[in-house]
């Protein structure tokens, strides 16, 4: 099982500028599997992304935009991207600010589809 997860994550981390990718329990913010560069705090990425995603999901629902599927937080020194994999999981990537967001998004969606 963990080899399967690792394979899924490796396709994301192969993209230039991606510092790490992980599968996270959506509601708990705990790491299921990760593939991270040294220095990336996996548990922090997982917990903070899950918490942000929960808040965002409440807002998208309230605004009539429906159920959250993808989020991209762009910051000056990096970016955080996540795709929901069903109601249970999130596939998350942390990346450099100049990463190819479109490509990461596609790989995250593919990873989420492989998980569900």
């Amino acid at each position: 099982m963990s080899k399967r997860f690792q394979g899924i994550l490796d396709t994301i981390t192969r993209i230039r500028g991606v510092r790490g990718a992980m599968i996270v329990v959506y509601q708990d913010g705990l790491v299921v599997s990760d593939s991270l560069m040294e220095g990336v705090r996996g548990n922090a990425v997982a917990a903070l992304t899950s918490s942000l995603a929960k808040h965002v999901a409440n807002a998208t629902s309230a605004s009539g935009a429906g159920v959250l599927q993808f989020l991209h937080l762009q910051a000056i020194s990096g970016a955080l991207l996540a795709v929901t994999a069903g109601a249970e999981m999130l596939v998350v990537a942390i990346a450099d600010p100049s990463v190819n967001v479109g490509l990461v998004r596609l790989e995250l969606i593919r990873a989420a589809e492989a998980l569900t």
């Binding site: 996270v24 509601q27 913010g29 548990n43 917990a47 903070l48 899950s50 918490s51």
Partner: peptide, 12 residues
């Protein structure tokens, strides 16, 4: 309103 992940993270 919280999650096990957040509690563990901030517990560290």
């Amino acid at each position: 309103e919280s999650t096990p992940g957040l509690v563990q993270l901030f517990f560290e």
